Amino acid sequence: MAFGQLSVKGRALKLLAAREHSRQELERKLAAKEPDPAEVKQALDELQARGFLDEQRVVDSIVHRRAGRVGVGRIRQELQAKGIDAERVAIAVASLNASEFERAREVWRKKFGAQPEDASQRAKQARFLAARGFSGEVVRRVLNTPDDE
């Protein structure tokens, strides 16, 4: 059966089988194919009641997949873009803050492995870490701490 011939619930389940989706993501994706928003809402309500749709699993999935490569800022932005409520985002961010320096240090070590020799290299390394979502304070600490610590 082709994707277009599936029921709304069937399409939602097919999307959820690939990866965790937030309710807002599924609403957006399903609305493109389904003209009746009430049918989309009913299908998502039923999936949520049965435990197929769970915002906390979405948060856990993103944190698990992304925390080793990006900073709190990037993870916060991704969770907000998926429509996760502010309280869950705050809890996830708070749990990551304690390990932010160590995670940034590991990302830096994999990419560069050596302290910058001049201002140009320092700026390049700082931009790299900032683009990954690490805060300015954490970037400064990583670049100012010798690698042997």
Results as ranks from 00 to 15, higher is better:
2 A>D: 14
3 F>Y: 13
4 G>S: 15
5 Q>P: 00
5 Q>W: 04
6 L>R: 03
7 S>D: 15
7 S>R: 02
7 S>G: 15
9 K>Y: 14
10 G>H: 07
11 R>E: 13
14 K>G: 01
20 E>W: 04
23 R>P: 01
27 E>I: 02
28 R>H: 10
30 L>R: 04
31 A>E: 00
31 A>Q: 04
33 K>N: 12
33 K>R: 13
36 D>L: 11
37 P>Y: 00
39 E>F: 05
42 Q>Y: 06
43 A>T: 06
44 L>V: 01
46 E>M: 10
49 A>H: 12
57 R>H: 13
60 D>H: 11
62 I>S: 06
62 I>E: 07
64 H>T: 10
64 H>Q: 15
65 R>F: 09
66 R>P: 03
66 R>Q: 07
67 A>Q: 15
71 G>P: 10
72 V>W: 12
72 V>N: 14
75 I>V: 03
76 R>W: 12
76 R>L: 10
76 R>N: 11
77 Q>H: 11
79 L>G: 05
80 Q>T: 04
82 K>L: 13
82 K>G: 12
84 I>E: 03
85 D>G: 02
86 A>V: 01
88 R>F: 02
89 V>T: 02
90 A>K: 08
91 I>H: 02
91 I>K: 04
93 V>E: 09
97 N>S: 15
97 N>C: 06
100 E>C: 13
107 V>A: 14
108 W>T: 11
108 W>Y: 12
111 K>F: 03
112 F>W: 12
113 G>C: 09
115 Q>W: 06
117 E>Y: 00
118 D>E: 15
119 A>S: 10
119 A>Q: 12
122 R>W: 07
123 A>W: 07
126 A>W: 06
127 R>Q: 14
129 L>W: 05
129 L>S: 14
130 A>Q: 15
130 A>V: 10
131 A>K: 13
133 G>K: 08
133 G>R: 04
135 S>H: 09
136 G>T: 00
136 G>L: 05
142 V>E: 01
143 L>N: 05
143 L>C: 07
146 P>D: 06
147 D>S: 03
148 D>Q: 03
148 D>E: 00
